[in-house]
Amino acid sequence: MLAYLRQSAEEVPPNVSLVTNESGERKLRFRQTLSVHYNNNSLQTVPLCAHLSLPTVSLSCDSLDFGTCYVGQTLVKEVHLSNRGGSSSYWRILIDSGEEEEGSEFRVTPDCGVLKPLEYPVSSCTQPLQISFTASNEREFQATAVVEGVLGEPPLSLHVQGRGSFDERFVSLLADI
């Protein structure tokens, strides 16, 4: 059924549609007619409608700027990943720095998990994500953290950036060393 989410509008059968309500919750709607044939040769048709609830995930922001940080020092900021949909979301985060060599300046913890649907306690449908930045050199760093779900959720992007400096005025006493 989830394969319909990956198909173009022309490929999806006319009895299948994606429905989004006012709160942003997404559902796949299936409409069909059930034909019941009786022994006395009579026929009864019954319209059927079924909904498949989908996860609807969102981030509390779409960009993070760590500003200028002292090289080698780790700073941490937090964003929240939430599910306001009607089914659980199985997600993971991949960081793309856009460079051939994979830089480890940005990290996300946790990098995967499960978010329960909105009808569960709020604490189980929201996940705090710790984004850390450790400058390895005196320059600008940028990356995109992409949240991917396995149940047809559109991918979410979080742009992160920060700058490294050897200037000691950027040493933070609050950093997570």
Rank of each mutant, 00 (worst) to 15 (best):
E153I: 04
E102V: 00
V12E: 07
V46Y: 09
L94N: 08
C49R: 15
S60A: 01
G152S: 12
L115R: 13
L156M: 10
S53K: 06
V76M: 13
E148L: 07
Y90S: 14
S157K: 12
F106D: 00
G103E: 02
L151N: 14
L28P: 00
V150S: 11
H37A: 05
V122H: 15
E148K: 15
P128V: 04
L151R: 08
V160E: 02
S8Y: 06
T20P: 02
E78K: 11
G98W: 00
R169A: 04
E10W: 05
G67A: 14
S88F: 11
F141K: 12
R84Q: 12
I177S: 14
L5C: 09
E22L: 11
V71R: 11
F170M: 05
C61S: 14
F141N: 13
L173V: 13
S104H: 03
V114N: 10
V19M: 07
L5R: 12
E153S: 09
R6G: 15
V36S: 12
L28E: 01
E148M: 06
V71K: 06
L129A: 03
L151A: 12
V114P: 04
S87D: 07
V150R: 14
E11M: 08
S60D: 01
S87F: 05
S157W: 09
T109C: 05
G72L: 07
R29E: 10
V122S: 08
I93L: 07
R92Q: 13
S60R: 02
L94E: 09
P121G: 13
T45V: 14
R169N: 15
F133M: 05
N137P: 02
S17D: 09
V76H: 02
N15W: 06
L48H: 05
T20E: 14
D167C: 06
